[in-house]
Structures are given as C-alpha cells and as structure tokens.
Simulated assay, not measured.
Amino acid sequence: MQALPHPHIPLQASEGALLRARAMQAYLLALRQGLARYAEIPPVHLMVLNEADWAARVKHPYGFPFQRTSLREGLYLFLPARYPERLIWRLREALVPAIQRAGKPPGQPGDFLDLNLGHEYAHAVAVAWKLRTRVRWVDEFLANYLYLLALHLALPELYPKAKQWGLLLAQLTPSEPSLGSYETRPKRLSDQLWFQGQFTTEAARLVEERGDALLCGLLEAAPLKKSTVHKLLVGLEPRLREWFVSFAPQKRPGSSKAELGWEEVGDSF
C-alpha cells in the first residue's frame, strides 16, 4: 500500500494502482472545488484497492465504488483498482433493455462506474454538511443533486455524460417503482439502476432550472430531520411534489385519498 497525504483528498493505493488513484483524486478535487464555495468540506479519504487489500478492510463485495462515512470516524471512499469482469458483465446485461429503447450508451460500464465515484463523494459531503437524513431514497436523491451540481459548476464537459447515463437508466423497467419499496426491500441491479436514473434526471432538472437554490435552502435548514425533510423539500421546490407522487402506487377505484403525509411515505411512496 502507498499512502499519499493531501489536505483535501488523501489517498491510499494498492501496488500498481497509483496512476489510477491520482487520476480519480484529480476528479474528486475538481468536484470539491465546485462545492467548497458553499461550506467547508473536511478531508475525504480515497482508497483505491486491489481485491486482497479490499477484503482486508471492508466486507462489501469487491466491485462497486462505495462510501463509508462518519463525522466521528472519518469520510472514506472505496474504489477498486480494477473492475471485476463479472461486474462489468452484470452491468452490460442489466442495461440491454434500456439500450434497446434509448440507443447506444454514452460510454462503457467502467466509465459509468468511474463517473459515479462523484456520487459517492457527494454522499460524504452531505454527511459533512449534516444533510444526511437516513431515509435512503432522500439521501440518494440529494447525493445525485450535489454530484450533478458539482459537475455543472466545475466539470461542465462531464455533466452531459452524467445526465445521459441517467436518461439511459431511467429507460429500465422496475419491478416495484415506489419509494417505500426502495427503503424496505432488497433491490435487483436493474431496479437500483432505474432509481438512480430517476434521481439523476430529476436532479439534472433542478440544476438546470434552479441552479444551487435547493442546496442553499438545505444548508440553511441543516441539520435535516427525517420527520420534516419531505415537507422541507416540497417547500423549497414545489414541483418536487408532483415528482414524489409519480412514484406512488395507482389509486384503487373509489379511493378518495388526495395527498400523502410524510409519515405515510414508507408505505405509499
């Protein structure tokens, strides 16, 4: 292992992974530059690991980038030194129906995974800014928003590609398109990708139409609370109400229920 200190993105890399680690560090530093204007961001550690070093440190299966974040224990991102072929083939297989509907993807599966490291970085930033709610779909949506906002501000050449990936993923067909199921039930890969597509495309709309308005409102309201975050989001961005409702199960004939409260989101959204 090689450790390289840095004030913002310190990294550790397995043998042979240093060039990849430096390239991804530069990517994250650019995203940081886009977001640091809003509030202080503590160091986020980047770990670029081969399979053996990965297994020695975390229990997650080797492959997908992920974050392990805590204000007390530190903010960490984990990225494989090389994506396993089994993961690439799983992604390709899952994307086939979307490609049949929408056409050629904007890159290879590995490109998507590398770009999506920015989404994991956004999770770490959300924790640092006390925007994490521990409502999974809210946290995923806000991470997508922060990620796309950072791209739009700091890496505008990559922003269209991230949006194109989102539009492609949104062409998949979910087994259960409710936000409540996102919270409570294990998801197959195509379902996870579909939700990612939905969150990405709505986040892109917010970034393009409203810029950083949602972020400024969230920072003013932080720390966010699980019990009030839904009302806060709708208050800051009223058009989100219609988007939330799009995930709801269809009403049964004769049902007169017009609106859903936050306490019912787990069952109905």
Rank of each mutant, 00 (worst) to 15 (best):
H123R: 06
A124W: 13
V125W: 02
V125L: 07
A126H: 05
A126I: 03
V127C: 00
A128Q: 04
A128L: 05
W129G: 00
W129N: 01
L131G: 03
R132N: 00
R132M: 00
T133M: 02
T133Q: 01
R134W: 09
V135W: 01
V135E: 06
R136M: 06
R136W: 03
R136L: 07
W137N: 02
D139I: 02
E140K: 09
A143Q: 12
A143S: 15
A143W: 09
Y145G: 04
Y147N: 14
Y147G: 08
L149W: 04
A150D: 04
L151W: 05
H152G: 05
H152L: 04
L153S: 06
L153I: 04
A154W: 00
L155Q: 09
L155Y: 03
E157T: 10
P160M: 10
A162R: 11
L168C: 14
L169D: 04
L169E: 07
L169W: 07
A170R: 02
Q171K: 13
Q171Y: 10
Q171G: 03
P174L: 00
S175A: 13
S175I: 10
S175K: 13
E176H: 14
P177L: 11
S181D: 09
Y182C: 07
Y182M: 14
E183M: 10
T184A: 15
T184E: 15
T184V: 12
R185Y: 15
R185F: 13
P186C: 14
K187I: 09
K187E: 09
R188P: 04
S190I: 03
D191E: 09
D191A: 10
D191H: 04
Q192W: 12
L193F: 08
W194E: 00
W194R: 01
W194D: 01
F195H: 03
F195G: 01
Q196T: 15
Q196E: 15
G197I: 01
F199T: 07
T201W: 06
A203H: 11
L206S: 06
L206N: 03
L206C: 07
V207P: 05
E209T: 15
R210K: 13
D212W: 02
D212E: 13
A213Y: 07
L214K: 06
L214Q: 09
L214D: 08
L215Q: 10
L215G: 12
C216N: 14
G217A: 11
G217Y: 05
L218Y: 02
L219I: 06
L219E: 05
L219D: 05
A221I: 04
A221N: 07
A222L: 08
P223D: 02
K226A: 14
S227V: 14
S227F: 13
T228W: 12
V229R: 05
K231T: 12
L232W: 10
L232Y: 09
L233F: 06
L233A: 02
L233K: 04
L233T: 02
G235E: 07
L236M: 06
P238I: 09
P238R: 07
P238H: 08
R239H: 13
R241A: 15
R241P: 11
W243F: 05
W243N: 01
F244S: 08
S246V: 06
S246R: 10
F247S: 08
F247C: 08
P249A: 14
